[in-house]
């Protein structure tokens, strides 16, 4: 039943444009992480004309704040956080060339518009499957804002990180498609 599309970061526009809402993917390569506090700082850096701690072009951003690693682990549990809190910031990063974001839950109209216009996708990872997801993370390095603890920006190397395309570049939305398919009016 399950067929996966293998994705290797960084991602090109042509790869991104082929993805459709509902596609299951396995991502390998680099993911950068950021959540609320880190986004606030990134946008402040952009506004004051500073260079970002990493080049967003062609990259994927994973909304996550992991638990501390146990001895012998590269990272603790690391599932997605709810994405809408990053909606204020996402269009700016997408315009700069970010090719996708990974989180859970719906996005704003502005983010969906930016994804269509600048060719980016939104992936969902399974929220709460944090111990399972962590097994696909092979290497982790904090690259910025270490003082933010769990919210620091990390560069992760992942192998077969499982995700599903929710919003594609054509306006397809799996949350709407899924809900329509299974709703029973009363």
């Amino acid at each position: 039943m399950t067929e996966y599309i293998d994705l290797e970061t960084p991602l090109s526009d042509s790869t991104i444009e082929k993805l459709k809402a509902g596609d299951k993917v396995r991502i390998s390569g680099v993911l950068y992480t950021a959540r609320d506090a880190a986004h606030k700082r990134l946008i402040e850096m952009i506004e004051s004309g500073k260079d970002l701690p990493f080049d967003v072009k062609g990259q994927l951003l994973y909304y996550v704040g992991p638990t501390p690693a146990k001895p012998g682990q590269v990272i603790g549990s690391a599932g997605p956080t709810t994405s809408y809190r990053m909606d204020t910031y996402a269009p700016t990063l997408i315009k700069m060339g970010l090719k996708g974001t990974i989180g859970k839950g719906g996005r704003s109209k502005e983010v969906l518009e930016a994804m269509k216009r600048y060719k980016a996708v939104y992936f969902a990872a399974v929220g709460g499957a944090a111990a399972l997801i962590a097994k696909t993370i092979k290497k982790v390095e904090i690259i910025a804002f270490e003082d933010l603890g769990a919210e620091a920006i990390r560069k992760m190397e992942v192998e077969n990180f499982p995700a599903i395309v929710v919003n594609d570049t054509k306006g397809g939305d799996l949350y709407n498609i899924g809900r329509e398919k299974y709703k029973i009016p009363y």
């Binding site: 549990s77 956080t81 499957a129 111990a131």
Partner: peptide, 24 residues
């Protein structure tokens, strides 16, 4: 598939004694 992953994840938490979710 999602629910199966959640059950697998719960099993990892129990067996490896790690948090089931990163938001503790």
């Amino acid at each position: 598939e999602v629910i199966t992953q959640l059950l697998d994840n719960a099993e990892i938490g129990r067996k490896e004694q790690v948090p089931v979710c990163q938001d503790t």
